[in-house]
Design a protein around this nucleic acid. Structure first.
Lengths: 342, 342
DNA sequence: CTGAAAGCGCTTACAG
DNA sequence: CTGAAAGCGCTTACAG
């Protein structure tokens, strides 16, 4: 492989000049610029990015940690991240943590080993002691998207989870539902906690309560939705609506309900979350909460970029979400409808 | 950040010894090993991988190029790749080419800029002149998975596309279908070509022919399946079966057919390809060809690893696929059934 | 077993 | 505008 040295020899200049001609052509006369470019082309020169990184102390690479590469929700976010990153000359390294904090740690290590300049985490399942110092500050450029660490000041971009969840419940209640169940994510997952809080706040507002056996726990996969649906739908006092904390689980519920001969939406309303592409293609089409995925990715990357450039930007960005009504929701059978005193 | 120099000073040894103690502890006395380890721990040392790469001339990183991060099919393959790669101390950089050869080129550049040691491409849409020299040899460690460059000797692992496609058609014909349409991928896509060849070979074997208007062209997305279905299903002589070259398109077809009031599978049989998780969760459940995705990923990574270690392995691995019958296929209405002369 | 020294391929502050 | 020189942080062949 050709190096700056080879080019220098061929062009009859110093390596310093080669470097300048290639990186800052304006610092060099037109004629040397031309000589160098020609020599570089002739030798098929490709700069050694590793050597450059070592010298400049930056890798121009950021790593994005995703909890599960099999989850559709993250694709568009990554597209948004890449759009901005590439525009600014940054590479994107996608690391699948597989919901394992040990694997997440490995990806964060890339910053410590200087292979990446910053981290964009799409999960909050990252080792807190690796990222926060004694003063509660982040130890390196980090942005958390979609999720957030409540109570910390880690920069983050997300929708208003609590409000969105609360809106879902509000609209179900407006339809007349009151036997409302939900399928949440694992305990201690901040998103799940926020959404559940929104759910309960709204129920309380209407002087309703969601009994414990109506709160199913899934892991955001199709299969877990399918399995938890089984429990919920076999309950003595079966819910008339199920709010799932993502679309995958909702689609699992549709499948199980269909198999059990329960008519959707006549006998059971289902609401998902995320508005993944498949949500429009299942039968019936899924009512869900749309998250502006690409925008989240773009905003998160811009935020990280501004941190990387040494600025102290506003560390929290909240983006709008919207509830999309499709074919899995309608008022419950009349005898099961909430009677509202006026 | 602490460096070997700092550790050397603290431990009272040379940097050479520090390096040895950390990388090859057996080359060093137990007592110096202990001293060095202690010093390293005390300083919170993290090795600079960039400096190491520059010195050792290897990055221990491989890049995997995928055509579309939004496509479910690739998730498990990546999981398989990562499983093997991590076990062998390699990092995996996932690059989304977005079906754009210019972007694929950027990822391959990582090899030339020494940031990656090899490439695992899950698409054949890569610039041929960048990877093949005048003698028709690959210029750097490269494995193509799922797809293949017919006629080249680029190492690859894949299923037998032609045979799998031909089996699908065979079984449709056995059911009595003969008005069989398909939705293929773009022209010049090798997978698409191989499968189409399998389709046509099998049709010919039964002395049938697939008319041109029965061959729809999609781009492997839900939407394209939906749109092409519209054309196919509005044909004067409507097909009784549609074979889609991936599950996404098949699910798009299901959606459109359902909207048009066409009963599946009574009036229309549909077969997909890939067996993505959603194929089990749509209504009806999709008949499809299962590809051993994780195994493909693992095999491809092992093949790349063996190339990286300087071996000349068998450059072509063919893995078994299997046809999975679910709810979208059955014999066509009796009056549309193929009459076989015995 | 250990150390001094060279070198991987760049970039950049400094001097001219 | 250009060049000589230093240095980023490692590893390793060589000498002892």
């Amino acid at each position: 492989m050709a190096t700056v040295k080879d080019i220098a020899k061929l062009a009859g200049v110093s390596t310093a000049t080669v470097s300048r001609a290639l990186a800052n052509p304006e610092k060099v006369t037109d004629s040397t610029k031309k000589k160098v470019e020609q020599a570089a082309a002739q030798l098929g020169y490709a700069p050694n990015a590793i050597a450059r990184s070592l010298r400049t102390q930056e890798s121009k690479t950021i790593v994005v940690i995703i909890p599960d590469i099999g989850n559709h929700f993250f694709s568009d976010i990554i597209k948004g991240i890449e759009l901005i990153a590439h525009k600014k000359g940054y590479q994107v390294l996608v690391g699948d943590a597989d919901r394992d904090i040990v694997r997440a740690r490995k990806y964060i290590d890339l910053v410590y080993s200087k292979q990446a300049d910053g981290v964009l985490s799409l999960t909050s399942e990252i080792p807190i002691e690796q990222i926060i110092d004694e003063q509660g500050q982040t130890k390196f450029p980090l942005v958390v998207a979609c999720e957030n660490y409540p109570g910390s000041n880690i920069p983050s971009v997300h929708i208003d989870q609590e409000f969105s969840a609360s809106s879902v419940i509000e609209s179900l209640i407006q339809m007349g539902h009151y036997k409302i169940a939900c399928i949440r994510g694992a305990d201690r997952n901040p998103i799940s906690e926020s959404r559940l809080k929104g759910v309960q706040t709204c129920m309380a507002k209407w002087q309703l309560r969601m009994p414990d056996e109506y709160i199913g726990v899934g892991d955001y996969t199709l299969l877990s939705g399918y399995e938890v649906a089984e429990q919920l739908l076999n309950l003595e006092d079966r819910p008339t609506a199920i709010f799932c904390f993502n679309d995958e689980m909702a689609i699992g519920v549709i499948r199980r309900a269909t198999e059990m001969g329960i008519k959707i939406p006549e006998q059971l309303s289902i609401v998902g979350f995320d508005n993944i592409p498949f949500s429009e293609y299942c039968t019936p089409q899924l009512t869900t909460v749309h998250q502006p995925r690409q925008l989240i990715g773009e905003s998160a990357m811009k935020l990280l970029l501004s941190i990387l450039s040494g600025k102290k930007p506003n560390p929290e960005i909240t983006l709008p979400a919207q509830l999309i009504f499709r074919g899995t929701t309608m008022p419950p059978p009349i005898e099961q409808r909430l009677k509202i005193d006026i």
